[in-house]
Design a protein around this nucleic acid. Structure first.
Lengths: 132, 132
DNA sequence: CGATCTTTGACAACGGTTCTCAACAGGCGT
DNA sequence: ACGCCTGTTGAGAACCGTTGTCAAAGATCG
């Protein structure tokens, strides 16, 4: 059960530290391969899974269902505004929304409440690129 | 391009009308089969797709990525509080949240904004069942 | 009724993710 | 330093929800 620090896990964490945007496991795998780090795809998935479980990375689902990962600046609970084209991300928090969510859910007799609040859009750069 | 009203499409719509909770395409297919209506799985998927496109049904992604469908009472924009065990659903709207979302996104220079706001929990009934 | 043209359905294909299992390598004890 | 023990790796298979294929079936119109 002791988490060993292997070359592969280190590589995944380092890659995440350098990338500011949300990326899929496959994109990350691609990146590692490209920079010469030989890491298996399954290993990337496992590393991300472990990191997510330890709250070291945030996970969210793209509109097509693919999982995207990101190492966030703050470890506290927060949400994201993500560019659906390039993955560019802005961290957001909404104290108002949090309160609203738990109040509404509790009023209906629901327990173990969890909420998904994500904002998707097209960032200024991508809009410019798409226009050309 | 003219949408023909076939036996299969009618069956899917009728099933949705009778079920108040979010269900997956496969569950719906199962239900139709069980009641004697012979409908192909691909057809169920296509029917749901068409209905979703016409805003006749709401779609949302379960935590494992599966798509869930539901015929909602109101066609206007709204959100859901869903029981993650049985799919039981309560429709919700949050005018405050809507305003907050678009304001935040616009402030960051993002366009074509879309937001995902869903609440997950365990309903009173399922909690009781799980405890026994 | 017949012609036309969409829809159907069994099955294959797809894409992301997880599983399998033998080879491998941290890291602790000596 | 050396081995051993045990967690980890990786190539490929398996999985599972979903979409594509294409010949046969059926809805609609004249």
């Amino acid at each position: 059960m002791a988490a060993r620090m292997t070359r592969q896990r280190t590589a995944v964490v380092e890659a995440l530290d350098e990338i500011a945007d949300f990326r899929s496991a496959q994109q990350l795998h691609e990146t590692l391969r490209a920079r010469g780090e030989s890491v298996g795809l399954a290993t990337v998935y496992r590393a991300l899974q472990a990191l997510a479980e330890a709250s070291e990375v945030d996970v969210l689902r793209a509109e097509d269902g693919e999982s995207l990962y990101r190492r966030c600046a703050r470890r506290e609970h927060h949400h994201h505004l993500v560019c659906r084209m390039c993955g560019r991300t802005v961290e957001i928090d909404g104290p108002t929304v949090e309160a609203w969510a738990s109040k509404v859910a509790a009023a209906q007799g629901f327990d173990d409440i969890e909420h998904t609040i994500e904002l998707w859009g097209t960032c200024a750069d991508c809009r410019a690129t798409a226009a050309s």
